[in-house]
Amino acid sequence: MNRLLILTIASEVFLLLSFLIIFLSTRRTKKSIFLIPLLIVGGSPLLYLAVDHMNSHYVDANIGLGLAFMFTWIYSAIAFVVAIVLMVKRKRKNNI
């Protein structure tokens, strides 16, 4: 399997996992619907540039692809930190 494909899938799974934890730690209200556009905003640049890189073979380095990976990883890390904070906050609220 291509290394780029493995990294892309792992990055998108980590992003999806972060948003899934956020969704499960919040109450299922109409505000949870706003998580879907945030997930799309976080994952679409990487998917677009990874598919573009696989279809067209560039001679030089694809800086945009590296920036898309960095954006997705930072976005995933921020979402994961928010998910952990929400989970801890919910757990403390349930214990009191």
Rank of each mutant, 00 (worst) to 15 (best):
N2R: 05
F69Q: 11
F14S: 10
F23N: 08
R92M: 06
V59H: 00
P45Q: 02
T8M: 07
A83P: 10
M54D: 03
Y48F: 15
L67V: 05
E12Y: 08
T72E: 09
G42Q: 02
I63C: 01
V13Q: 08
P45F: 01
M87P: 09
I84K: 04
S32Q: 13
V85L: 14
F14N: 08
F69Y: 12
V88Y: 06
D60P: 00
F71P: 06
A77F: 07
I78Y: 06
S18C: 04
L47A: 15
V85Y: 10
K89P: 02
K93Y: 13
F69L: 13
F14K: 09
L17C: 10
F71C: 07
S11Y: 03
I78H: 07
L39F: 14
N95E: 00
R92W: 01
I96A: 07
V82R: 10
S25C: 03
F69M: 14
I78W: 07
M1S: 14
F69D: 09
M1P: 08
K93P: 06
R90C: 04
I6C: 11
A61E: 02
Y75N: 10
A83L: 08
T26L: 15
L47I: 14
M1G: 13
V51Q: 11
G43Q: 02
S76C: 04
I33P: 04
A83G: 13
R28A: 14
K91L: 07
P45R: 03
S56G: 00
V41W: 12
P37W: 03
F23K: 12
L38G: 07
L20E: 06
F71Q: 09
I63M: 06
W73H: 11
S32K: 14
F69S: 13
L39D: 01
K30M: 15
T26E: 11
E12C: 12
G64F: 07
W73S: 14
P37D: 01
K30S: 15
L4A: 04
I36M: 15
M70E: 09
Y75D: 03
